[in-house]
C-alpha cells in the first residue's frame, strides 16, 4: 500500500493508503477526501481533480501528456505544481506523496 496525503486549503490533512495502480483521484473519491470530484470518472476530461503537488514529489511523477496539459488550462489557479490526480497512478516511488487541493474545488 502507498501512503498519500491530501491537504485541504485550510490545512486539514488526510492520509490514505492506496493500492498500487489506483489513481490518486480514485483514492480520494473512495476515501471521501473533499476537494477532489473526478466528475468524468478519470477520463482526463473535466479538470475537477486538480491538485498542487508538493515540490519534492513533482519530479517523481510521470511526465504530463498533452491531454492533461490542455485540461489543466481549465483549472483555476494552475501553476508549475499543478497536476490532475486522475493521471497519477500510485506507485511505490510515490509512497508518502503530499498533494494540496485547491480552494476552488471545495
Amino acid at each position: 500500500m502507498i501512503k498519500v496525503t491530501y491537504i485541504e486549503f485550510n490545512g486539514t490533512e488526510r492520509t490514505v493508503e492506496v493500492e498500487e495502480g489506483v489513481s490518486l483521484m480514485e483514492a480520494a473519491v473512495n476515501n471521501l477526501v473533499p476537494g477532489i470530484d473526478g466528475d468524468c470518472g478519470g477520463m482526463c476530461a473535466c479538470a475537477t481533480c486538480h491538485v498542487h503537488v508538493e515540490a519534492e514529489w513533482l519530479d517523481k511523477l510521470a511526465p504530463m501528456e498533452e491531454q492533461e496539459d490542455a485540461m489543466l488550462n481549465l483549472a483555476e489557479g494552475r501553476d508549475g505544481s499543478s497536476r490532475l490526480t486522475c493521471q497519477i497512478q500510485a506507485t511505490p516511488e510515490l509512497d508518502g506523496i503530499r498533494v494540496r487541493t485547491p480552494i476552488g474545488q471545495h
Binding site: 498533452e66 491531454q67 496539459d69 490542455a70 485540461m71 488550462n73 481549465l74
Partner: peptide, 11 residues
Amino acid sequence: INRPAEFIAAR
C-alpha cells in the same frame, strides 16, 4: 481527435 487544446478552446 487527440486534440485537447482545440476542444478546450471551443468550450
